[in-house]
Nucleic acid binder design. Structure first.
Lengths: 342, 342
DNA sequence: TTGTAAGCGTTATCAA
DNA sequence: TTGATAACGCTTACAA
């Protein structure tokens, strides 16, 4: 790898001059020298050393993408539809903006903090952060930072976040279930914090506001692993006739559950109705097509990155909580069980 | 951010000593000093500056993941099931090994080369490379490099690659179609190079070796975009009765096509049979369940990274072409159309 | 056992 | 318009 110093020697000018023409600081260099230098630059195919640049400039040209995820030490964290698409969208935006993307996933915020600090990333997109975690990160990492799907209590800090109408989405689809006559609904999530909590709140409130008893909605825990899902559904099967509808926190779960149920002779939606959340590609590919709440991970990524760029390029840019709208996708997995009789 | 120099001053020792205890080169330091230093290290929560370390050591601690992809400038390259899972698997392995992961996707090999060179990545996992591209990369990038799903002509270079029995998989599933009585089969791919070409060869050879005429297999181009898929299928519909089976180069295509066909009143497999390739999660989630060729992206990633580590840690490690086995997943999307009469 | 100083490849300040 | 030179934060001979 040829260095600026070597180039300078070859051309017969100083490193400063070479550096200047490389960086386009041409108002300080004579036309003659510029051409001389550029000619050689082409010839030797000079490639700048990012590490050296970053050390000198105290920046990094990297945008970090960090995920605070549980149980990912031995498991693939990008297997679900949402994350994959989000990463792809971000990669594209980051690259188009001339930055580089580093990915770091961990269940330990301290490690994430170490990562962003030691790499001195110029900007950060952070997933899976709530409350204390977010605060910890914010305390240490002082550069532009936008959360995606973050969820924070009011601690006096201002967080920039790109989220979704999670509460509203869950509320509306639950309302839809109720309109369809469902009175015994199961709610399935792998945890009940952050956006999952919001969705659960929407579910509960829709039930309450419809004047239904609390027992109309029952809460289940489901694990992300294949085995965990199966275990949860095995248990469900014992009491399956207690329910007329199942609400899964994500299409990933919903779609696996549908498969499981149908394999066990349960018809959807004739025997039981199912709804999901996210409107992943798979939702409209399965049969029956899944009724769900629409969101767009690519858009989420793009919006998040746009905001991050503003934060980077304009010191006066304000923190902001951007909430993207949802919409219902009514498809085929819910049955209207209202009795026909009036 | 506190630096080693500052630490040294605080403690009253030299930077060298501090550096030594940080890096665990403790045989050269007295127990007393070690403790003194470590105490302060904890107190101030020292975080090393990666950039400086890398510049000094002429390494980077980063593993690059590069994709040579067409038409990704304006599109999300990680939207398909395979890529997302692969990235997730690699992220996990890379992190567990103490490295950091950078992602760079481009349709321009020169840019990819610039990326790996300027960041001086310690190792590289490369996707979507064939022939000239691979050679170019190899010429410039001299550190450990393993391709995934690469495909190269014999140019005298030795490439390390992790691939799949693509030819065999396509051959066997085509054979299966033929056994089921299919004599007019469409083959759909977005390109016919690299592993796609191998799969196509398998398809063609199975037909030839079964003594069938060439016309038994017809080749189609299909684009990756939603619109492109639709356009291709619109055209297919005109002549749909010419075919009894459709072979899609990936489950992504197959599953979207199934949806399209069923929406257009075509029954699968009664009216037409469909097979895919990859055995993505979605394959067993759709109805009818998709008959396909199994592979495991997580395993592919793991194997690739293991080999990369060997290459990094052992200068004598040899280049190697690792071919992972396939297996057939016979499910529900193919109909046996042999006449019952003997 | 500890410390000094050069070096990694840039940028940036300031003098010439 | 150009060029020394210091600085970025660390590692590593080598000297003490």
């Amino acid at each position: 790898m040829v260095t600026i110093k070597e180039l300078a020697k070859m051309i017969g000018v100083s490193p400063t001059t070479v550096s200047n023409v490389i960086r386009g600081k041409t108002q300080e260099v004579s036309q003659q020298t510029i051409e001389k230098v550029q000619k050689v630059l082409k010839e030797v195919n000079y490639i700048p050393n990012m590490t050296a640049i970053n050390l000198a400039k105290n920046s990094s040209n990297v945008i970090g993408y960090v995920m605070n995820a549980k149980g990912i030490i031995q498991d693939n964290a990008v297997k679900d539809f949402f994350t994959g698409e989000l990463i792809g969208a971000l990669e594209m935006e980051i690259r188009k903006a001339g930055y580089y993307m580093m990915i770091y996933i961990s269940d330990d915020v301290e490690e994430i903090i170490k990562f962003v600090s030691s790499w001195n990333v110029d900007g950060l997109i952070a997933l899976g952060f709530t409350d204390d975690n977010a605060q910890k990160l914010r305390e240490v990492y002082k550069k532009p930072l936008v959360f995606i799907d973050g969820h924070f209590y009011d601690d006096g800090n201002e967080y920039t976040n790109v989220g979704l109408e999670d509460y509203k989405g869950a509320y509306e689809i639950t309302q839809y279930l109720i309109e369809c006559g469902h009175r015994r609904m199961g709610f399935f999530a792998n945890n009940y914090i952050g956006i999952n909590h919001e969705r659960y709140r929407g579910f509960k409130d829709a039930i309450k506001n419809a004047g239904l008893p609390e027992e109309a909605g029952e809460q289940f825990f489901i694990e992300k692993s294949e085995k965990g899902i199966k275990r949860c559904l095995d248990e469900l099967m014992i009491r399956i006739s207690d329910f007329s509808a199942l609400f899964f926190i994500s299409d990933n779960f919903a779609v696996v559950a549908m498969d499981y149920l149908m394999e066990n002779g349960i018809r959807i939606p004739e025997d039981i109705s199912v709804v999901g959340f996210d409107d992943a590609a798979v939702a409209s590919l399965v049969r029956p097509k899944l009724t769900t709440v629409h969101q767009n991970p690519t858009q989420k990524g793009r919006v998040a990155f746009e905001k991050l760029m503003k934060l980077i390029n304009n010191p006066d840019e304000k923190a902001e909580n951007i909430i993207l709208p949802i919409s219902l996708c009514i498809r085929q997995s819910v049955k209207n069980i209202n009795s026909r009789a009036i």
